[in-house]
């Protein structure tokens, strides 16, 4: 832990919106370039033009949708951190579900419930991948050093061996 990092929380919202926008714009660009290419009239140049037009038209929209999702998710995540005074995987899962629910609010309660379920499961999967990776990387270093107890508690915390 370095002393000079600021609190991630309010600033992370902007980071997440931007990252989600980029992700959506690139992914949507690839998707719509292929779709526009296939939907265009015959002829290679026309197909390329159709692909370009589809990308120009659609990929910012998809990026925007992603950015809304990411920004909303991060906002709720930060609110939950503030409310619960704790950072753990539950925050992420709950904010995924809440984001799904809120963004489907105009489609009625059943749609909200379904969307919230999908959001929660999705974020649980993402958290699970993270947990799994830390477990698997921890297994790799199996013959671990035996930690020595600090003989005077609190004296040598900083010299402890590396954690996972």
């Amino acid at each position: 832990m370095d002393e000079y990092t600021r609190e991630p929380c309010p600033w992370r919202i902007l980071d997440d919106s931007g990252g989600a926008f980029i992700m959506g714009a690139i992914g949507g660009g690839i998707f719509h370039s292929i779709k526009g290419f296939r939907n265009a009239p015959v002829g290679f140049s026309r197909k390329m033009l159709g692909s370009l037009a589809a990308v120009k038209e659609r990929s910012p929209v998809i990026g925007g949708n992603f950015a809304v999702w990411g920004g909303m998710f991060s906002t709720i995540d930060c609110s939950l951190v503030y409310l619960r005074q704790k950072e753990d995987p539950w925050n992420s899962i709950m904010s995924g579900a809440l984001t799904g629910g809120i963004l489907a609010a105009r489609n009625g309660v059943p749609a909200m419930a379904g969307s919230a379920l999908v959001g929660g499961i999705l974020l649980a999967l993402i958290e699970g991948i993270g947990i799994m990776f830390t477990r698997l990387t921890a297994e790799q270093f199996k013959p671990q050093p035996i930690f020595e107890d600090p003989s005077v508690l609190g004296q040598n915390q900083t010299q402890n061996p590396s954690f996972q």
Partner: peptide
């Protein structure tokens, strides 16, 4: 804190 500015991962080590 991770690169994604999450701080949910608590460092721990299991030893014998």
């Amino acid at each position: 804190e991770t690169t994604r500015r999450r701080r949910t991962h608590v460092s721990h080590a299991i030893y014998l």
